[in-house]
Write a protein that binds this DNA or RNA. Sequence first.
DNA 1: CAAGTTATTGCAAACTTTAGCAGCAAGGAT
DNA 2: ATCCTTGCTGCTAAAGTTTGCAATAACTTG
Lengths: 154, 154
Amino acid sequence: MAGENIQFREQLKKKGYKMTTQRQAILDVILQHEGEHLSTEEIYELVKKEHPDIGLATVYRTLLLLDDMELIYKLDFDDGCNRYELNRHKDDHRHHHLICTQCGGVEEVEEDLLESLEEQILKNYGFIVLNHRVKFYGYCKKCSENSPKKAGQD
Amino acid sequence: MAGENIQFREQLKKKGYKMTTQRQAILDVILQHEGEHLSTEEIYELVKKEHPDIGLATVYRTLLLLDDMELIYKLDFDDGCNRYELNRHKDDHRHHHLICTQCGGVEEVEEDLLESLEEQILKNYGFIVLNHRVKFYGYCKKCSENSPKKAGQD
DNA sequence: CAAGTTATTGCAAACTTTAGCAGCAAGGAT
DNA sequence: ATCCTTGCTGCTAAAGTTTGCAATAACTTG
Ligand SMILES: [Mn+2]
Ligand SMILES: [Mn+2]
Ligand SMILES: [Zn+2]
Ligand SMILES: [Zn+2]
């Protein structure tokens, strides 16, 4: 996907920012790992393979920049670090995540299905929804089959 | 509300944990500030008024414990610190938050309205939803009235 | 209520993320 | 190609959070 690359350069120019080898390297790593939920440290280690002199702070700053531009999305799975995923532009809104409290696995939900709730929010609160972050906690298929219990926590 | 207090003591005993003056003090502060979204540091400062010798690490650990017990909920408004709110037990599931990207204001949504989406998730993914975390980003009533523009970001 | 067991506390160090700063590199203009 | 402006980088320090550890306080039992 070179589309993200072109879009990145255009958005940088539009905001008066500059393209650098470090930014290119970080975006490359993310593009090469589409579908994964990489942590900042993992991205740092991957980038260092090609650019051993890059600073960790630059990785943090670049990920913040890519998140602002919505080329990537920041995730919080409560595992002590930030994670990021490529915005695949399939949908207008962010996809949801299913987090299994038993095995820790993370699945993605293709369906949005929040239109009626967003209409309700506009009607009841006058709030215009532009995007959302939705996580569901519970038992994945495998875990609910293997241990057919009922106890559960968030 | 002494209900939370009793529930707290019962859950501690059931898990073999102990009630301490520090834990009581922290829960008291949270109960006295129902409806607010206090940060760890803010809770620490409030607790110190009555218990000046308490350690910050104890506050962090106790908030983690209360979150595990679902007496409180951890919030992430991307403002550089963790925030917490009392679980008011009004609903089975957590309420949603509306976050205005213009003024930074946070509103709460009473309606859940996720039943059909959760059914869809069970049908399509075999995932049993126990709880969820939902944040909507956009323009609050005031901000969308004061500046009737269209541009927007997540 | 005294003794014994064990979870909890406060402190300090480690870890994750952000911010400040001087030198450097990108990109526009000549 | 050279100069110039300005944003960017790497380093370091700071802020926010978690973890390890010895001393302490809470609960159990007698
Ligand atoms: Mn995902
Ligand atoms: Mn709330
Ligand atoms: Zn699972
Ligand atoms: Zn607003």
